[in-house]
Protein backbone atom coordinates (compact mmCIF):
# COMPACT_ATOMS: atom_id res chain seq x y z
CA UNK A 1 0.00 0.00 0.00
CA UNK A 2 1.64 3.21 -1.15
CA UNK A 3 -1.02 5.81 -0.34
CA UNK A 4 -4.27 6.04 1.55
CA UNK A 5 -6.22 9.17 0.77
CA UNK A 6 -9.27 9.52 3.00
CA UNK A 7 -11.88 11.48 1.09
CA UNK A 8 -14.52 11.61 3.83
CA UNK A 9 -15.47 9.74 6.97
CA UNK A 10 -16.59 6.81 4.77
CA UNK A 11 -14.64 6.94 1.54
CA UNK A 12 -10.95 6.53 0.77
CA UNK A 13 -8.73 5.85 -2.19
CA UNK A 14 -6.13 3.18 -1.62
CA UNK A 15 -3.08 3.07 -3.86
CA UNK A 16 -1.33 -0.28 -4.28
CA UNK A 17 2.04 -0.91 -5.87
CA UNK A 18 0.86 -3.60 -8.24
CA UNK A 19 2.29 -2.57 -11.61
CA UNK A 20 1.73 -5.81 -13.49
CA UNK A 21 -1.93 -6.03 -12.47
CA UNK A 22 -2.43 -2.35 -13.28
CA UNK A 23 -0.75 -2.63 -16.68
CA UNK A 24 -2.96 -5.57 -17.63
CA UNK A 25 -6.24 -4.05 -16.41
CA UNK A 26 -8.97 -2.86 -18.77
CA UNK A 27 -11.75 -0.45 -17.72
CA UNK A 28 -14.42 -2.29 -15.71
CA UNK A 29 -12.20 -5.15 -14.58
CA UNK A 30 -11.80 -5.91 -10.89
CA UNK A 31 -9.32 -7.26 -8.38
CA UNK A 32 -9.93 -9.51 -5.36
CA UNK A 33 -8.47 -7.90 -2.25
CA UNK A 34 -7.79 -9.49 1.13
CA UNK A 35 -8.14 -7.05 4.01
CA UNK A 36 -6.20 -7.78 7.17
CA UNK A 37 -4.43 -11.03 7.95
CA UNK A 38 -5.78 -14.16 9.55
CA UNK A 39 -9.28 -15.60 9.47
CA UNK A 40 -11.41 -12.55 10.27
CA UNK A 41 -12.36 -11.38 7.76
CA UNK A 42 -11.75 -14.57 5.84
CA UNK A 43 -12.65 -13.95 2.22
CA UNK A 44 -11.37 -11.50 -0.34
CA UNK A 45 -13.60 -8.70 -1.62
CA UNK A 46 -13.98 -7.55 -5.21
CA UNK A 47 -13.00 -3.98 -6.12
CA UNK A 48 -13.06 -2.20 -9.46
CA UNK A 49 -9.71 -0.86 -10.56
CA UNK A 50 -10.26 2.87 -9.97
CA UNK A 51 -7.10 4.42 -11.43
CA UNK A 52 -4.02 3.09 -13.16
CA UNK A 53 -1.16 5.00 -11.52
CA UNK A 54 1.81 6.23 -13.54
CA UNK A 55 5.13 7.94 -12.81
CA UNK A 56 6.49 11.04 -14.62
CA UNK A 57 7.62 8.97 -17.57
CA UNK A 58 4.13 7.41 -17.88
CA UNK A 59 5.39 4.05 -16.62
CA UNK A 60 2.70 2.12 -14.76
CA UNK A 61 3.46 1.99 -11.03
CA UNK A 62 0.30 0.61 -9.55
CA UNK A 63 -3.44 0.96 -9.19
CA UNK A 64 -5.91 2.55 -6.84
CA UNK A 65 -9.22 1.40 -5.38
CA UNK A 66 -12.18 3.55 -4.40
CA UNK A 67 -13.34 2.14 -1.09
CA UNK A 68 -16.46 2.84 0.96
CA UNK A 69 -16.54 1.75 4.56
CA UNK A 70 -19.48 -0.62 4.96
CA UNK A 71 -18.35 -3.82 6.63
CA UNK A 72 -15.33 -5.37 8.30
CA UNK A 73 -13.09 -5.64 5.22
CA UNK A 74 -13.89 -2.17 3.91
CA UNK A 75 -13.29 -0.70 7.39
CA UNK A 76 -9.86 -2.33 7.53
CA UNK A 77 -9.06 -1.00 4.07
CA UNK A 78 -10.26 2.46 5.12
CA UNK A 79 -7.77 2.40 7.99
CA UNK A 80 -4.92 0.68 6.11
CA UNK A 81 -1.44 1.98 6.85
CA UNK A 82 1.34 2.91 4.49
CA UNK A 83 3.58 -0.02 3.67
CA UNK A 84 1.01 -2.61 4.71
CA UNK A 85 1.00 -5.62 2.37
CA UNK A 86 -2.42 -6.23 0.88
CA UNK A 87 -3.04 -9.33 -1.24
CA UNK A 88 -4.54 -8.29 -4.56
CA UNK A 89 -5.50 -10.75 -7.30
CA UNK A 90 -6.36 -9.70 -10.81
CA UNK A 91 -7.23 -8.18 -13.16
CA UNK A 92 -10.37 -10.29 -13.38
CA UNK A 93 -13.64 -10.36 -15.28
CA UNK A 94 -14.95 -8.93 -18.51
CA UNK A 95 -14.36 -5.21 -19.03
CA UNK A 96 -16.53 -2.52 -20.57
CA UNK A 97 -16.41 -2.30 -24.36
CA UNK A 98 -15.54 1.31 -25.14
CA UNK A 99 -17.42 2.76 -28.10
CA UNK A 100 -16.01 4.76 -31.00
CA UNK A 101 -17.09 8.20 -32.18
CA UNK A 102 -19.56 9.35 -33.28
CA UNK A 103 -21.38 7.20 -30.69
CA UNK A 104 -21.56 9.10 -27.41
CA UNK A 105 -20.80 7.49 -24.06
CA UNK A 106 -23.11 8.19 -21.13
CA UNK A 107 -21.78 6.88 -17.87
CA UNK A 108 -24.19 6.53 -14.94
CA UNK A 109 -22.60 6.26 -11.49
CA UNK A 110 -24.22 5.95 -8.08
CA UNK A 111 -22.02 6.48 -4.99
CA UNK A 112 -19.06 4.13 -4.88
CA UNK A 113 -20.22 2.98 -8.33
CA UNK A 114 -18.00 5.77 -9.65
CA UNK A 115 -15.07 3.36 -9.36
CA UNK A 116 -14.88 1.85 -12.87
CA UNK A 117 -15.49 5.13 -14.68
CA UNK A 118 -12.16 6.88 -14.22
CA UNK A 119 -10.36 4.32 -16.37
CA UNK A 120 -13.28 4.11 -18.80
CA UNK A 121 -13.28 7.91 -19.19
CA UNK A 122 -9.57 7.78 -20.02
CA UNK A 123 -10.18 5.12 -22.67
CA UNK A 124 -13.11 7.05 -24.16
CA UNK A 125 -11.18 10.31 -24.11
CA UNK A 126 -8.25 8.80 -26.01
CA UNK A 127 -10.70 7.57 -28.65
CA UNK A 128 -12.19 11.03 -29.00
CA UNK A 129 -15.62 9.88 -27.81
CA UNK A 130 -17.96 12.59 -26.44
CA UNK A 131 -18.68 11.50 -22.90
CA UNK A 132 -21.07 12.46 -20.12
CA UNK A 133 -21.00 11.32 -16.51
CA UNK A 134 -24.31 11.21 -14.66
CA UNK A 135 -23.16 10.97 -11.08
CA UNK A 136 -25.42 10.69 -8.05
CA UNK A 137 -24.49 10.69 -4.37
CA UNK A 138 -26.12 11.32 -1.00
CA UNK A 139 -24.66 14.83 -0.65
CA UNK A 140 -22.22 17.27 -2.22
CA UNK A 141 -19.31 16.12 -0.04
CA UNK A 142 -19.64 12.61 -1.48
CA UNK A 143 -19.17 13.64 -5.10
CA UNK A 144 -15.51 12.83 -5.66
CA UNK A 145 -12.88 13.31 -8.35
CA UNK A 146 -14.98 15.71 -10.40
CA UNK A 147 -11.84 17.49 -11.63
CA UNK A 148 -10.42 14.26 -13.01
CA UNK A 149 -13.48 13.86 -15.24
CA UNK A 150 -13.63 17.58 -16.14
CA UNK A 151 -9.94 17.40 -17.08
CA UNK A 152 -10.72 14.64 -19.55
CA UNK A 153 -13.45 16.74 -21.12
CA UNK A 154 -16.29 14.68 -19.66
CA UNK A 155 -19.53 16.61 -19.21
CA UNK A 156 -20.86 16.23 -15.66
CA UNK A 157 -24.50 15.88 -14.67
CA UNK A 158 -24.66 15.73 -10.88
CA UNK A 159 -27.45 14.79 -8.50
CA UNK A 160 -27.59 14.53 -4.72
CA UNK A 161 -30.29 13.09 -2.52
CA UNK A 162 -30.33 16.19 -0.30
CA UNK A 163 -29.95 18.72 -3.13
CA UNK A 164 -26.65 20.07 -1.77
CA UNK A 165 -25.10 19.88 -5.24
CA UNK A 166 -26.57 19.48 -8.69
CA UNK A 167 -30.14 18.35 -9.07
CA UNK A 168 -32.00 16.99 -6.05
CA UNK A 169 -33.04 13.36 -6.41
CA UNK A 170 -31.95 10.27 -8.28
CA UNK A 171 -29.36 10.16 -11.02
CA UNK A 172 -31.66 8.29 -13.40
CA UNK A 173 -34.02 11.31 -13.63
CA UNK A 174 -31.70 13.54 -15.71
CA UNK A 175 -30.59 10.47 -17.66
CA UNK A 176 -34.14 9.79 -18.76
CA UNK A 177 -34.83 13.47 -19.60
CA UNK A 178 -31.73 13.70 -21.72
CA UNK A 179 -32.52 10.51 -23.59
CA UNK A 180 -36.05 11.77 -24.21
CA UNK A 181 -34.64 14.98 -25.64
CA UNK A 182 -32.34 13.13 -28.03
CA UNK A 183 -33.19 12.22 -31.60
CA UNK A 184 -34.07 8.55 -31.58
CA UNK A 185 -31.33 7.71 -34.08
CA UNK A 186 -28.48 9.51 -32.26
CA UNK A 187 -26.14 6.72 -31.15
CA UNK A 188 -25.53 6.56 -27.41
CA UNK A 189 -23.96 3.80 -25.31
CA UNK A 190 -25.06 3.77 -21.68
CA UNK A 191 -22.64 2.49 -19.03
CA UNK A 192 -23.81 2.01 -15.44
CA UNK A 193 -22.40 1.08 -12.05
CA UNK A 194 -24.01 1.58 -8.68
CA UNK A 195 -26.74 0.23 -6.40
CA UNK A 196 -28.92 -2.55 -7.79
CA UNK A 197 -32.05 -0.35 -8.00
CA UNK A 198 -30.19 2.28 -9.96
CA UNK A 199 -28.82 -0.35 -12.34
CA UNK A 200 -32.26 -1.82 -12.91
CA UNK A 201 -33.78 1.63 -13.59
CA UNK A 202 -30.93 2.58 -15.90
CA UNK A 203 -31.21 -0.66 -17.85
CA UNK A 204 -34.99 -0.22 -18.22
CA UNK A 205 -34.62 3.39 -19.35
CA UNK A 206 -32.01 2.34 -21.92
CA UNK A 207 -34.39 -0.30 -23.27
CA UNK A 208 -37.25 2.24 -23.39
CA UNK A 209 -35.14 4.60 -25.49
CA UNK A 210 -33.72 1.79 -27.55
CA UNK A 211 -30.09 2.29 -26.49
CA UNK A 212 -27.57 -0.42 -25.58
CA UNK A 213 -26.51 -0.48 -21.93
CA UNK A 214 -23.54 -2.13 -20.24
CA UNK A 215 -23.97 -2.48 -16.49
CA UNK A 216 -21.30 -3.43 -13.99
CA UNK A 217 -23.02 -5.55 -11.35
CA UNK A 218 -21.88 -6.09 -7.80
CA UNK A 219 -22.51 -9.42 -6.13
CA UNK A 220 -21.11 -11.05 -3.03
CA UNK A 221 -18.18 -12.99 -4.42
CA UNK A 222 -16.43 -15.92 -2.79
CA UNK A 223 -13.46 -16.31 -5.07
CA UNK A 224 -13.66 -14.11 -8.19
CA UNK A 225 -12.40 -17.00 -10.30
CA UNK A 226 -15.48 -19.04 -11.09
CA UNK A 227 -14.88 -21.58 -8.36
CA UNK A 228 -17.79 -21.06 -5.99
CA UNK A 229 -20.92 -20.04 -7.95
CA UNK A 230 -21.77 -17.37 -5.36
CA UNK A 231 -21.91 -14.29 -7.53
CA UNK A 232 -24.53 -15.34 -10.04
CA UNK A 233 -26.85 -12.99 -11.92
CA UNK A 234 -30.10 -14.21 -13.53
CA UNK A 235 -29.79 -13.64 -17.29
CA UNK A 236 -32.52 -14.17 -19.85
CA UNK A 237 -31.38 -16.05 -22.93
CA UNK A 238 -32.91 -15.79 -26.40
CA UNK A 239 -35.32 -18.63 -25.71
CA UNK A 240 -36.70 -16.66 -22.75
CA UNK A 241 -35.26 -18.98 -20.12
CA UNK A 242 -33.39 -17.56 -17.16
CA UNK A 243 -29.89 -18.83 -16.41
CA UNK A 244 -27.64 -18.00 -13.52
CA UNK A 245 -24.31 -16.75 -14.84
CA UNK A 246 -21.26 -16.16 -12.71
CA UNK A 247 -20.64 -12.41 -12.67
CA UNK A 248 -16.93 -12.95 -11.96
CA UNK A 249 -16.40 -14.74 -15.29
CA UNK A 250 -19.23 -13.53 -17.55
CA UNK A 251 -19.25 -10.08 -15.88
CA UNK A 252 -18.97 -7.90 -13.93
CA UNK A 253 -19.97 -5.97 -17.06
CA UNK A 254 -23.15 -7.47 -18.51
CA UNK A 255 -25.71 -6.37 -21.11
CA UNK A 256 -28.40 -4.58 -19.08
CA UNK A 257 -31.29 -5.69 -21.27
CA UNK A 258 -30.58 -9.39 -20.69
CA UNK A 259 -30.51 -9.28 -16.90
CA UNK A 260 -33.69 -10.50 -15.24
CA UNK A 261 -34.05 -7.63 -12.78
CA UNK A 262 -36.97 -8.68 -10.55
Amino acid sequence: MIANRQLSSDYNVLALRAPSIAAAASPGQFVMVKAGSGHDPLLRRPFSVFEVLRDQTAGVTGLSLLNKRIGVSTSLLYAARLGERIACLGPLGRPFSPVDAPTEAWMVAGGVGLAPFATLAHALCSRGVRSTLFYGARRAQELFYLDLFRGLGVELVLTTEDGSAGERGRVVAPLERRLAARRADAPVMVYACGPEGMLASTAKIAVRYNRPCQVSVERIMGCGLGGCYSCVVPMRSDDGRVHHVRSCLSGPVLPGDQISWE
Binding site: H39, L42, S230
Partner: peptide, 16 residues
Protein backbone atom coordinates in the same frame (compact mmCIF):
# COMPACT_ATOMS: atom_id res chain seq x y z
CA UNK B 1 -29.66 -27.04 -12.45
CA UNK B 2 -29.83 -23.32 -11.85
CA UNK B 3 -29.46 -23.39 -8.05
CA UNK B 4 -30.72 -20.85 -5.54
CA UNK B 5 -31.14 -17.09 -6.02
CA UNK B 6 -28.48 -14.79 -4.57
CA UNK B 7 -27.28 -13.95 -2.01
CA UNK B 8 -25.80 -17.41 -1.83
CA UNK B 9 -22.99 -16.88 0.64
CA UNK B 10 -22.23 -14.80 3.67
CA UNK B 11 -19.11 -14.55 5.72
CA UNK B 12 -19.28 -15.62 9.39
CA UNK B 13 -16.58 -15.63 12.09
CA UNK B 14 -13.62 -17.53 10.58
CA UNK B 15 -15.93 -19.14 8.10
CA UNK B 16 -18.66 -18.78 5.55
Amino acid sequence: REGHPSPRIVETPAGM
